[in-house]
């Protein structure tokens, strides 16, 4: 099913209010914004009563080998439309402001992006790994992730199993 995205006029209005917003003229226009203006833009998208993008549908990140894009899909029931916001980050030191102050429900998803992609969210209440164990090295969803499987845990009473086998 084809989803509706924001029209050109609506996008132009957003572009008028923020300096760093740039729009890719493709079929599905994402809004690119700089990390500095990111939080004000999200606040405006959520609280503006003609837009009211109150539902954060999807939060993820894509590794493009030179940059890492963090992607937000917001949905507005009022307009019945999506808006796609993307923030480009530097791959060696990816860091953007956390959106949890605007959408409290983004907490787990941001932790997941940090865990699997290595993007740090400043101002997040609890920035820890969520899926991989503590002490895991690397971020699996990056394209250059290489990994050697560790030895599986040893049963501390292995001796007893062997003794039993000697019977």
């Amino acid at each position: 099913m084809k989803q509706r995205y924001l029209t050109a006029e609506e996008l132009a209005r957003i572009k008028g209010e923020f300096y760093t917003v740039s729009i890719d003229e493709e079929e599905r226009p994402p809004i690119y914004v700089s990390p500095e203006e990111f939080l004000p833009l999200m606040k405006m998208l959520k609280n503006d009563h003609t837009l009211s993008f109150t539902h954060l549908s999807c939060l993820t990140a894509v590794d493009w080998k030179d940059t890492i894009d963090v992607v937000y899909y917001l949905f507005s029931e009022l307009l019945g439309a999506y808006v796609v916001v993307k923030v480009k980050t530097i791959r060696n030191h990816p860091e953007i402001p956390s959106v949890t102050s605007v959408f409290p429900g983004a907490e787990f998803e941001e932790r997941e992006v940090y865990d699997l992609m290595g993007v740090r969210f400043t101002g997040h209440p609890d920035m820890r790994r969520i899926l991989m164990p503590e002490g895991f090295k690397g971020h699996p969803l990056r394209k250059d992730f290489t990994y050697k499987k560790p030895a599986p845990p040893k049963a501390t009473r292995v001796g007893e199993i062997e003794k039993e086998a000697d019977l």
Partner: peptide, 13 residues
């Protein structure tokens, strides 16, 4: 890249 928005995961919050 595939990302899955899993309802249970978000609901766990």
């Amino acid at each position: 890249r595939v990302h899955i928005r899993r309802p249970s995961f978000v609901n766990m919050q």
